[in-house]
Design a protein around this nucleic acid. Sequence first.
RNA 1: GCUCGAGUGGUGGAAUUGGUAGACACGUUGGACUUAAAAUCCAAUGGCCAUUGUGGCCGUGCGGGUUCAAGUCCCGCCUCGAGUACCA
Length: 1143
Amino acid sequence: MQLEKDEITMNYNFREIEAKWQKYWAENETFKALNNSEKPKYYALSMFPYPSGAGLHVGHPLGYIATDIYARYKRHKGFNVLHPMGYDSFGLPAEQYAIQTGQHPAITTEANIKRYREQLDQLGFSFDWSREVRTSNPSYYKWTQWIFIQLFNSWYNKTSDKAEEISGLVALFEKDGNEAVNAAFDDDTPIFNAEDWNSFSDRTKQEVLLKYRLTYLADTEVNWCPALGTVLANDEIVNGVSERGGHPVIRKKMTQWSMRITAYAQRLLDGLDTIDWPQPLKDSQTNWIGRSEGASVTFNVLPPAPSIGRGANIRLTGNSAIIGILLERAKEMRKRPTPAEAKLWEALRGKKLNVKFRRQHPVHNYIVDFIALEKGLIVEVDGKIHEYQLDADAQRTLELKQKKGFKVIRFTNDEVLHDIDGVVSKIKEVLNSLPSGEGWGGDQIEVFTTRPDTIFGVSFMTLAPEHELVSKITAQEQKEAVDAYVEATAKRSERDRMADVKTISGVFTGAYAEHPFTKEPVPIWIGDYVLASYGTGAVMAVPCGDQRDYDFAKHYDIAIPNIFEGVDISEEAFADKATTVIANSDFLNGLDYKKAVKKAIEELEKLGQGEGKVNYRLRDAVFSRQRYWGEPFPVYYVDGMPQMIADEHLPLELPEVEKYLPTETGEPPLGNATHWAWNSIENKVVSNEKIDNNTIFPLELNTMPGWAGSSQYFNRYMDPHNDNAIYSKEAIEYWEDVDLYIGGSEHATGHLLYSRFWQKFLFDKGIAPKEEFAKKLINQGMITGTSAFVYRLRFQVKPGYKTSLENILKIVDNMPVVYLSKNLFDQNVRDKSKNAGENAFLEKLLEKYANADKAWTHDISVKFSRLHVDVTFVNASDELDIKAYQNSIPEMQNIVFESEGNGNFGLEREIEKMSKSKYNVVNPDAICEEYGADSLRLYEMFLGPLEQSKPWNTAGITGVHSFLKKLWRLYHTGPNGEFYVTDSPPLEGQGEALKSLHKTIKKVEEDIKNFSFNTSVSTFMICVNELTSQKCTSKAILEPLAILVSPYAPYIAEELWEKLGYTESIAEAPFPKFEEKYLVESSKEYPISFNGKMRFTMQLPLDMAKDEIEAAVMGHEKTQAQLQGRTPKKVIVVPGKIVNIVG
RNA sequence: GCUCGAGUGGUGGAAUUGGUAGACACGUUGGACUUAAAAUCCAAUGGCCAUUGUGGCCGUGCGGGUUCAAGUCCCGCCUCGAGUACCA
């Protein structure tokens, strides 16, 4: 018994130490942060986890450890440190589990959190647990709902460039309508004046306001995942399938809440320059926002049968280049009609035939006698078309008829003068046969282009098949083909479309647009390479300058005009902006890219057909999910219009449901709730039966997405228990923002973009003092697993066996499954025949286990497979612990292990992602049990640079573990290994120890500054090795050393600190101060190199002058040996660094 | 395809502004202690050649270049990883 007790004091008993300090920290609230302090603040944050059922594996804590080291270091440096932790506890897995088992997600979540907490506690983090938040707690999501309401009550004023109260917008509408308002709003918003607005019904007003609110309800094309029964955000889809579960996703139109994040596109982009985040992360946000500069250009659709009204048509049907002359001419002609024209006009004018006719009307390059625009009918008298300016060749007549789609009928003067009734009835007849072309004319196609400089290279236009104009403009004769194409594309899933980028497909609509400058007709195609969701869903195709347009043009044999000077485009498009010189482009000729863009935009603006424009790829974020386990929207519906629940009645708590699946009518799971109606008088949730749509209304059935709760949690930590506000002004003014944020790179475009958006919004509203929530962000790399493999042999009956099946089966059934060790496999089987008959080794095995006549063994074959072996049964030398492994598998399995000669059973190792299915998951609990949390913390850091991904191999942990033992022993050099530290001041000869210490202080501080934690672990090892060999026992050295180590290995540091005589925790002990004076060297071991190659070293005083060094080196016998009599051409001496002899 | 990142011993990885490549560990080999094992300690360990010893040659993905000197800087390639994907 005595012996055991001694051993406890002597040895590094990490289990006891760690349990002791865990308790101490919890009881003394050692890491509790104060919201007011004389000290400077420091806010260190790790991304909070989703508490999954599997618990933590060794990869998870990597980032937490790094943050913790930094937080602890800052505490030693005299900062008031906020280092909180919580749980992102709403989420899909708990809900899926609920669907399968009926278990309430809150219960599973609670259990998972409990396990997480145990694991986190064990790892020795300096979290202030008093500030824990859980996104699924009503007291937390009250404020998520509150922010939602704030967004609902705000609009984005582009003039002040910030979010403002919606009431201000209403005031503007009341005064001036919406035309002059510069806001972020929906495209389909109608224009109204003050009078209109004031006459709108309340409902209409609400509808209009929804088009301006920062969160709004709208019919949106969403990514619907039938298998999950919910909508997914773009960033929740990976390769066309759901990120969770890999289910197919289709496009569907649904009424959904959306977040107007697009209003913040530019600020989200600009803000990236102000924060110290990893470049790849910034790049991916930049990419996601997708800003491109260019121009929007309006193309007028040339009408086959232009429509009625709106005076604008007069311009639209005529070639605008010559419209002035045409109109003048037409006027003149109207003044002097022929008798026949006059007579017919009397019969047609004033809608006598129920159709409005115009006379002497310009169409394209011509003036026609009479035209019914809405029917596309031209009536010509005397069989003539008054041509103007251009030759009346057959081509142009054809153009009017076919390309422009007009029906032309002709009468002679005689017919009109003598049989006006017959003529009119003929016209009536034709009119009746024509479809009403209402809405045909006056259509415009707006495109976005980044290359307005290439506008003269346009030879066609392409619309997305979903473009709203497609059905309108498609010519009769192309209708069938276009419809078929549109239908075919709609059917194709996103995934198909993505997988199949190479195939070129499209259909001509039969319609033409007019080129803004040349006024030439430009054919309009549709093609699925144009995306409805980007830009305007239409492109001006410039085949010579864009490869996709080029390929399309080649495929459909469309002209490819070359507008580049000295460039060959016979093989491919030319897209190099830097070397672009424009040609064949009228006023753009000879200009480079930049100048041509500017000029083209200027000219377009003159025409009123374009302007410079910035386009973003970023879409508004869909915010509704058809799930149960998420934040309920604080919304009820009156007359179908959403109403917010007043702040003082929040939180609106998640109702109980019987089933977590969608309802039979396809409503979200909350549709199952029986108690889910809002009493607007009593302001409480009541039974659905009471809904009267008078005072009691239905509540919203969707819930918020996973990112809702995580978009502001970092601010809530500052004042997590505040019930009156999301946080107090004092709290956020003290803490301001996160100084260091560490987490995985997978959140680059999800959490980290949405959080920045919400933060900017809160900043606009004066609720947050900083526009960016995290100054510095680090992505920790992934820890991958090292899988272990074994080769398994099974004996089988060979197909085409020659003897009795019954007998062979008898033998085979009794044969074991053989596991081959790696070396045996490598030497005897890999790269060799796996047919027993041709492989002596296998033949031998077969005979060994068949225990049968040779005749029988010919009918037995060997089948190989490579199996994952659970890494818990693998030792440091990649060998299998056969006994332990056997104990883990069912007994009835007859397995034999073919080991190597020395009895070891080697395994093959391979790096793979850490996952349950690969049996390579390493559990931190087991590591802590065997080596302790300090060892785990050190080892995770020791593995390599924080930001790199690196493989886990438990074997290596013995290195850091024995370091900790050495560290312990350094303080326990007394008799029987008792604690022994000398109090006496540093003696003579302690120079070396002080040097070791200060070298370490310097390096560790540098490392922490650079987040290079792996190298500081090495530094500690070197220091302890040095002090051990120096037999250092001085308190003056060992005390600061304990503080140095404490951020990395806090448990052992606390224990040593206590043994050194302190009664307070080491947590706030001041970090040792580095003193340069202990590192001053008097001499240096110079590397002496010859032609750049180091040959030997020489100890020389550091204060030696350059020429003295040269003389000393040249005088050295080894120098002479190296030179072998040659005279050096040059001797380079860099004092304090190197000597290089050339020659 | 585009964007970004990375290639160094058997393995993880060091190497500050160009200045002794492989620190520190793991693993391996040999040795000490032990009845034995574990633990601990000592020594060797980039490759090749030579060797009693001193030593020599090659070497940071490949090919060039700049420099007294290149893992590090420049040019051109190759491979791997991550993100993104018809973005007009």
